[in-house]
């Protein structure tokens, strides 16, 4: 330190400023006038680094109540529907026309019952391989001819009599002539439908029995593989 510059070793921060120097420092520290240079650039940089935080828009209480009511309503409808479906008491669909889940599965090639198997009215549309059946009789006694034929179709084939012939006979109530078709000298030939007297049922059977007997029976219409509309 140069002792000639007036330094006396006083280490305090209290300085006795000369009026000239005091005026100078006051001018140097005068309040700055807005806008300060560089403010826009600094703010732009700030926005680039700190993107504005988007406040989570909280749902208002009324919206919360509406949402809760809608959820409760939807849940009630769903529970009611599931319960009704589980008990089989659907109010509109189940009245007088319910499909039993234990309806025997009928292959397209199996015999359709001619009487009593169809619960549909003639005006209803059925499919060619429609397997609609009358609701099962709870007592098990009134299964009808359809069930009999179905059991017969699913039973093992007898050894001496062709199964198709047996089914044809049963389905046509002994009016089927499948046993006589395909043999020399008999009227009609293979694949030709033979109408039975007094019955609209038309049956035709293959001369050679097949595991799946294709005895088609359709009440009130000619044989058709496609949909039949009444």
């Amino acid at each position: 330190m140069d002792p000639l510059d007036g330094w006396t070793g006083d280490m305090t921060d209290h300085l006795d400023l000369d009026p000239l120097v005091g005026g100078l420092l006051m001018a140097a520290t005068a309040p700055a006038e807005a806008p300060l240079p560089g403010e826009r650039a600094a703010l732009a940089a700030f926005r680039a680094v700190h993107p504005p935080v988007r406040k989570l828009r909280l749902l208002r209480p009324t919206a919360n109540l509406k949402l809760m009511a809608a959820a409760l309503g939807g849940g009630a409808v769903m529970v009611t529907g599931v319960a009704a479906a589980a008990t089989g008491t659907l109010p509109l669909v189940g009245s007088g026309h319910s499909h039993h889940s234990q309806t025997p599965r009928i292959h397209p090639g199996t015999v359709q019952p001619t009487h009593g198997a169809h619960a549909h009215s003639p005006s209803q549309t059925t499919t060619g391989n429609g397997n609609h059946a009358k609701p099962a009789d709870p007592t098990g006694t009134g299964q009808g001819q359809g069930s009999t034929i179905s059991r017969l179709a699913h039973s093992p084939a007898p050894t001496d009599v062709p199964k198709g012939q047996t089914l044809c006979t049963a389905a046509s109530q002994a009016k089927c002539h499948a046993h006589s078709q395909g043999t020399p000298g008999t009227p009609g030939h293979q694949g030709t439908p033979v109408k039975s007297n007094g019955s609209q049922a038309t049956t035709h059977a293959h001369p050679k029995p097949t595991p799946h007997a294709s005895a088609h029976a359709s009440a009130g219409s000619s044989h058709s593989a496609g949909p039949v509309s009444g």
């Binding site: 240079p37 600094a42 993107p51």
Partner: peptide, 21 residues
């Protein structure tokens, strides 16, 4: 300003910029 408030940063800028400049 830490939360991204522009106005708060402007206050800080005006607090420091005169001295810096």
């Amino acid at each position: 300003a830490h939360r991204g408030d522009d106005a708060a940063f402007t206050v800080l800028f005006r607090l420091g910029q005169p001295a810096v400049l």
